[in-house]
């Protein structure tokens, strides 16, 4: 079970949170101008990488705030959380290689 850091409440058990998938997908400002393919890409298609992943979590059983997490999808190591609108923490190559936070 993961340990997730809520930017407002601190580190808590994963059971307090829900993950809502890839972060930073921006809703198109001009849906009418998009082709069906472009719209479908926004609604359904995800990068789903095996590696570093920026994803949205919400602290359901806490402050109910949404935030972003950088996590490695193979090691499940979490490299940090950040509030919406904030830049993602940088993850050094060394940290990744060593499989350490």
């Amino acid at each position: 079970m993961l340990l997730i850091e809520c930017p407002w409440c601190g580190e808590r058990d994963q059971t307090e949170f829900t993950c809502h998938g890839e972060a930073h997908i921006v809703r198109p400002k001009n849906p009418d101008e998009l082709t069906d393919e472009q719209w479908g890409d926004y609604v359904f298609f995800r990068s789903n990488p095996k590696g570093l992943h920026k994803e949205r979590w919400v602290h359901d059983h806490g402050c109910r705030r949404w935030f972003n997490v950088v996590r490695h999808t193979h090691t499940d190591i979490v490299y940090g959380s950040y509030k919406p609108g904030e830049p993602a923490p940088e993850v050094s190559e060394e940290a990744l290689k060593g499989g350490k936070k």
Binding site: H20, R56, V58, W66
Partner: peptide
């Protein structure tokens, strides 16, 4: 409730 919060917090802050 979650749906409303999701849009408010992540898309239209």
């Amino acid at each position: 409730a979650n749906w409303l919060e999701e849009w408010l917090q992540t898309e239209w802050p």
